[in-house]
Write a protein that binds this DNA or RNA. Sequence first.
DNA 1: CCCGCCATCAGGATCGACCCTGAGACCTGC
DNA 2: GCAGGTCTCAGGGTCGATCCTGATGGCGGG
Lengths: 212, 212
Amino acid sequence: MKPRVFLVDDHELIRAGIRTELSDTVDVVGEADEVDAAIAMILERSPDVVLLDVHLPGGGGRAVIEGVRAHNETVAFLALSVSDAPEDVISLIRAGARGYVTKTIAASDLAEAVAAVAAGDVVFSPRLAGFVLDAFRDLPAGTSADPEFEALTPRERQVLRLIARGFSYRDVSVELGVAVKTVESHVSAVLRKLQLSNRHELSHWAHERRIL
Amino acid sequence: MKPRVFLVDDHELIRAGIRTELSDTVDVVGEADEVDAAIAMILERSPDVVLLDVHLPGGGGRAVIEGVRAHNETVAFLALSVSDAPEDVISLIRAGARGYVTKTIAASDLAEAVAAVAAGDVVFSPRLAGFVLDAFRDLPAGTSADPEFEALTPRERQVLRLIARGFSYRDVSVELGVAVKTVESHVSAVLRKLQLSNRHELSHWAHERRIL
DNA sequence: CCCGCCATCAGGATCGACCCTGAGACCTGC
DNA sequence: GCAGGTCTCAGGGTCGATCCTGATGGCGGG
């Protein structure tokens, strides 16, 4: 049973190329060259996989995914792009693409990728997978081992966590069952030890280090 | 040139299995069964790839990655686990693993995976890749279209962005070249329109919607 | 031309954030 | 028992955040 595939790309030539190259392994059930038409036809024909170009007139591939998702259609999207810019990859992943390959891919590999996505798998060319993971980790490279954090007393760390979540001094005092003045003392100590000057910097500091 | 591989797993049997199954395709340059020994030996022998069990006495696979990273060693980690629980996968990725496969993998596939990771690629079994992407997207499903945000005037949105970044009123007034009192007016309007009560909630609100 | 929306700013008030000094209670180790 | 660290709290002060009322000038539409 060949997967039913829908093509979205604004270049007629590329659509034609894909259509002929994949004709043995998939059923191409439709094509579109811009966002609105793509959404409408995808909803109408419910393909198994949508091969989606990143750059499109009318909002880009992302708009197509969001448009289709808005109608509760569950279609697998495989992004197919000339670009391997991290922003593009990340953007499509966030929108919900289950795969991302560049147009330099060999026809046979593309057929495999389509089959994999149709089967519910996720497909990424290795280079792009690297980007995704990097963005996923997102921690600033050289950030680890905090002698400053080690200098904090247990109580101070506890207060730090609460303040970083946006708690007011009063909130914290209630939460810990102590006086507001006590909370002030702890916060002052924390800010001094970490060499920060206010709760916003503290919040940033904590989020960067994933102290929650 | 066979990749130099280091094994970390607390089960002698499993290490033995891997060692014999992979003996044709990789050089096993060392083994360890707990965190501290693993870190020390990895630093000493600088393997190309570390095959790392998720669950280990002494802190888990994550502790190994962090320990090695703390010494500025650049080693590729491939997590190898009986577990495919999303928390485990996510945790290892955050720590810096460049791949994650389960122990049900066939020996030949494992050899391929090791080679791929050694070459700088990223390897994931399809099931796990799905988890990673799901966590990566993370946005609450139904969050889009904000009639409240639409109600803001251009100037108000501009002020909102700056405030959400932690700017003080004075900072914003300098940045925009207007009086502090004007900034106050705009912020008040924003908070009222969005039904928030302070800059912390505003910051949360903006970050959730990725308005930066 | 007047009305409404927007952007600008002031005066005046309240409350929370943050700092500094100082102090009592408790615990641990020498 | 004393020194040192932690946790607790108070007094008193500065400054920023937030709100309310109210006022001015520009700009666009009926």
